[in-house]
Every structure is written in C-alpha cells, then in structure tokens.
Nucleic acid binder design. Structure first.
Length: 368
DNA sequence: AATACCGGCGAGT
DNA sequence: TCATACTCGCCGGTATT
C-alpha cells in the first residue's frame, strides 16, 4: 500500500509593528511620525529599552532592544518623534479580539504570539493555492475593517515557509510560496534569515563557510549534529531544505514568568517587597487558567547581564501565591549564599510544569 | 538503562 | 548607546529509580 497526499496550505499572519500600530489606531494624530514603544525600567528618567517602533522610526535607525537613550539620541532633532510607554493590556485586548475571530473561523488554528498566528486550509487544496489566497485576503481585510490594522501574510506548504514568506514582504505584505518553489525561495537567503538561526548559530555556520540557506541545505548531517546537537543539527538541515512537518495546533501553556528591574543592583536577598506582588500575580494568572504548577524557579540577571537561574520541583502541585513566594524567597537566599559576589540587576520568578487542576498524576505516596 | 531534575544558552516576539 | 518582559526549545550533567 502506498499513500500520498497533497501539500498542506498554511497561512501565516503577522500584525505589522503591532504595539506601535495599536498606538497609531488609538491616536491617529501620531501616524506618519516616528513612534517608539518604550519599556521604562525606572532606574532613571530615560533608562530602559525599546520594545518596538513604527516604520518612520525604523527608517531613521531605531531598533527593537536598543536603549531608550540611544533612540532619543537618534531622534533628538526630530521634533515630531513620539515616545510612548508600553501598554501591554491594551495590545493584548486588541490581539484577543483578532485571534478569537480567526480561531472561530478556522478548522486549524494556532496563535504563535501576541501578534502572529497560523491558519491551515489544506482541506480545500488546489495546486495554485487559489483558495488559500482567497482566505488570506479575506483575513487581511477583516482585520483592517474591524481593527484598522494592517498585517502581512504568507502562504506556504509548512509553518516555516508561510512564516518566512510573510517576513519577506512587510509591512502590509502578501507572499505566496507555491509547492515546489520552496528551495528556490530559501536557497539564496542568508542563513540568518532562516527561522531559528540567530547570531550565534550564524557565526558557527560562517566558521564552516556556510552563508546561505542553500549552502546549509547541502551540509553533511553528521557535521551539523556535531556542531549543533542531535536535535537542532538535523532540524537545521531539514528546514534549509524546506522540510517542516510541525502541525498547526494550539499549544497548551507550559510556563509563566514575571521579571522586574531593580532600582539598584542587589547583593543580598532583600526583595520581599518585589517578590510578593509578582508571586500573587502569577498565582492569579495560574488560577484564571485553571492550572497548577509543579515547579518554581527564580531568574536573576546580573550587573554583567548574565542570566542566572535556580529552580525546584514541588512535592505537590500548587496554585498558592504564598507557596510561590516562599519557594522563590528560599531559592534567592540559597543563591546568594552560593554566589556571594553576584550583583543582580533584574529578578523574577518562573513557574513551570503546569498541569490541569484535576489531572491525576502520581501515586498514593504523594498524598500520604 | 531509562527517566527526572537542574542550570545554562539561544532564539523569537 | 547601554541594554525590557516575556515565551519556548534544547543541551549536557547529574541524580533517581
């Protein structure tokens, strides 16, 4: 018995410069001006980082992740530039409305982030993706009419291809990679454009003379495994060849975290006031999702910006803010005992091993 | 020998 | 220039069973 099936038809949707565009919709007067969305850390008047910006700001050199100070410097002669503090709740409410509509209308849907989603329309497959194109255009127009937001969409035979298609034409873009065109689309692109390949991986690939995705596609698999590990190595080769079987499926929440920047770096455990509210926050979020956590961790970012972490799995899953707080406190005390010289700039709590409230896991010994 | 746990790293939005 | 707040996946090492 042989079986064959059509390629999948997947639409990737990406809301353009999402946070900044939400602000443009809320206040149309700032449209066409450089708009910078800032995460102020509270250490000084302007300390903090740029979350994102609109295209006028980007054209002048503003980038995600740069310091607010640097963005202000770049825009210092631009009287019209607008710096706004991030308002995540507002963007989340806009996102929720859009995602709920898409989810309710799709047979297969996956929200990938606050501003990205996949819709699969394989069931009405045609070789020119005419149906997928029609659906994608309808989605774009829906979002434009209901929320006044532009978006970029890509269509391809996998999530990877659809996503990279969407990325290739931004903003307000529309790109289709037909089945069979995968390699010719990917081949000429620099490896850094491949989803999952960031600066570190690019650097390593450069060291073995691989600079394009087409070159990566030809590298010996064992060599990639040696360099990048048994999972990532083979995946890189697959992706570079346009192979990606990952399904369009909504993923359950796996972890939640909260982290804050301290007013000044700390060398001892003295953060009850900081940990208390974020513990309660996490407990509330857990409870509202109907989940329990089985492991609790702390995150610290040192003055040298190195990430430190400690974690502990619990004997019994919890949703208690008190237990989250007490466990995190204990982990921080232990951490500073082990690393007396550490100065922490940012601290946070991560809860993971999330499970449904009524999942029956474990044996009798867990209860007695 | 398999599985679980732990801390670190990399990547993405 | 001076560096946020999240999420996810994977790695190697070690402990547990």
């Amino acid at each position: 018995m042989t079986s064959s099936s059509n390629p999948r038809a997947i639409i990737a949707l990406d809301l353009d410069y999402f946070y900044a565009q939400c602000e443009e919709v809320r206040n149309p007067a700032i449209r066409d001006k450089p708009v910078v969305i800032c995460v102020y850390s509270g250490r000084s008047e302007i300390s903090g980082a740029v979350s994102t910006s609109n295209y006028p700001a980007r054209r002048l050199g503003v980038r995600s992740g740069m310091s607010i100070a640097f963005a202000k410097k770049i825009l210092k002669d631009n009287a019209s530039a607008v710096f706004l503090s991030i308002d995540l709740e507002y963007y989340q409410s806009v996102s929720d409305r859009i995602m709920d509509i898409l989810r309710s209308r799709s047979e297969k849907f996956e929200q990938a982030s606050i501003d990205e989603a996949f819709v699969e329309v394989s069931s009405q497959y045609d070789s020119g993706y005419l149906n997928a194109i029609k659906v994608a255009k309808a989605i774009k127009e829906d979002i434009l009419s209901s929320e006044k937001l532009t978006s970029s969409v890509g269509i391809g035979s996998s999530k990877l291809l659809a996503k990279m298609a969407a990325d290739s034409k931004k903003p307000d873009g529309f790109a289709v990679i037909l089945p069979g065109e995968e390699r010719s689309f990917l081949g000429p692109l620099p490896v850094g454009k491949l989803f999952g390949v960031g600066p570190k991986t690019s650097e390593k690939l450069k060291s073995i003379n691989v600079s394009t995705i087409g070159e990566l596609a030809l590298v010996n698999e064992e060599k990639l495994s040696d360099l990048f590990g048994r999972k990532l190595g083979p995946s890189l080769k697959d992706w570079a060849n346009g192979r990606d079987e990952s399904p369009v499926v909504e993923k359950p929440i796996e972890q939640m975290s909260r982290i804050v920047t301290l007013k000044s770096d700390a060398t001892i455990f003295e953060f009850q006031d900081v940990l208390q509210p974020i513990s309660e926050d996490l407990a509330r979020k857990l409870h509202s999702s109907g989940l329990l956590c089985k492991s609790i961790g702390i995150i610290g970012i040192t003055d040298a910006l190195k990430v430190k972490s400690r974690s502990k799995s619990l004997p019994v899953p919890t949703e208690s803010g008190k237990i989250i707080f007490e466990t995190a406190s204990e982990l921080f005390s232990n951490f500073f005992e082990e690393e007396k010289e550490s100065r922490l700039r940012r601290i946070g709590i991560k809860i993971s091993d999330l499970q449904g409230m009524h999942s029956k896991i474990g044996s009798l010994e867990d209860y007695f």
